[in-house]
Amino acid sequence: MATREAILRHALDLFLERGYGATTVSDIARAAQVATPTVYASAGGKAALFALLLKPAINDPAAAEAAAEARRAEDPRHVLALCAKGARLGQERYWDLVYGLMRRPPEDDLALEAVTEVVAKCREALTAIAEHLMDLGALKTGVGLTEAADTLWFYFGQNAWCSLVGDSGWTFDRAEEWLLRAAIRDLLPET
């Protein structure tokens, strides 16, 4: 297990430093101080390594719990606050993966499948929250389920965090607060 962990750690470092395309399995093996066949035997090829690196983000129980808590809340503003908190938690916890790897995913079928799986899981959770807001009768007049889900994705999906935190240098606190205010403004009726 230690060999596999070393391979994954060095793969991540090299993907972040050089980029996915410029990194070879031989580079990863050299950095992990193992033979190239050992990389394939213990973790798979480059795309399999990329997918393995994203797996913790796909299966994060804390993010799933935050989404579940949002779906249990009855106050629409609290629902959105929990959604913002959960999105921030996932982005912050896996920032190297989100900002470093997923922002410019490799053009490799297996690696793209891993990115697609992360995005699908996030969109699924946000759609469930949009459904909950709809069930509560909390959405602005004229805002339907699809628009609500798309709005939540726009504000709480990876691109918002990459833009504000990664590209613009905002803190996670500032981004969370601003994104929450914007989501409340666009989704909920004025009180």
Rank of each mutant, 00 (worst) to 15 (best):
A2D: 13
K85G: 13
E74K: 08
A160I: 05
A182I: 06
A70C: 10
R30I: 14
T23Q: 03
V39T: 05
E17F: 07
S168F: 12
A130K: 03
L49V: 05
K121V: 11
D96N: 04
L179A: 02
P189S: 09
C162L: 14
H10P: 05
L89Q: 13
A48C: 04
A70F: 07
R30V: 14
A125D: 02
Q158E: 11
N159W: 15
L145R: 06
I129Q: 01
I184H: 00
T141S: 14
D135C: 06
R9D: 10
D150W: 07
K46T: 05
G100T: 03
S168P: 04
A175R: 01
V118N: 00
R93S: 08
A48R: 03
R72A: 15
T38G: 14
L136N: 02
L188T: 04
L97Y: 01
A2E: 13
G137E: 05
F154W: 12
A35I: 07
W178G: 04
Q158Y: 10
V39S: 01
K85Q: 15
K85E: 15
R185D: 07
A57Q: 12
A63V: 13
A41P: 06
E113D: 14
R104H: 12
G142M: 08
T171P: 06
V143I: 12
V34Y: 08
R30P: 08
L53E: 00
L188A: 04
R9H: 07
F50W: 01
A148Q: 02
F15R: 06
D60N: 11
A175T: 14
A57R: 11
I7A: 09
D109N: 06
V98E: 01
A11F: 05
V98H: 00
P106T: 07
A111V: 03
A130W: 09
L16I: 05
Y20L: 10
E65T: 12
L126S: 00
Y99H: 13
A81P: 02
R103F: 12
L82C: 06
S168T: 09
R71K: 15
D135R: 13
R30W: 14
W95G: 01
T116W: 12
K121D: 10
G90A: 15
T38C: 15
L54A: 06
L136A: 03
D75C: 07
G157T: 02
S163P: 00
A43P: 01
A68M: 09
L180H: 00
E131K: 09
A183I: 08
T36A: 14
A183N: 04
E147S: 04
I129D: 01
W153S: 13
I184G: 00
P106R: 04
L110T: 08
T127M: 09
G166Y: 04
K140A: 11
G44D: 02
A22R: 14
A81F: 11
R77I: 14
C83D: 09
V165F: 01
A11V: 07
F154P: 02
E74N: 08
F156A: 02
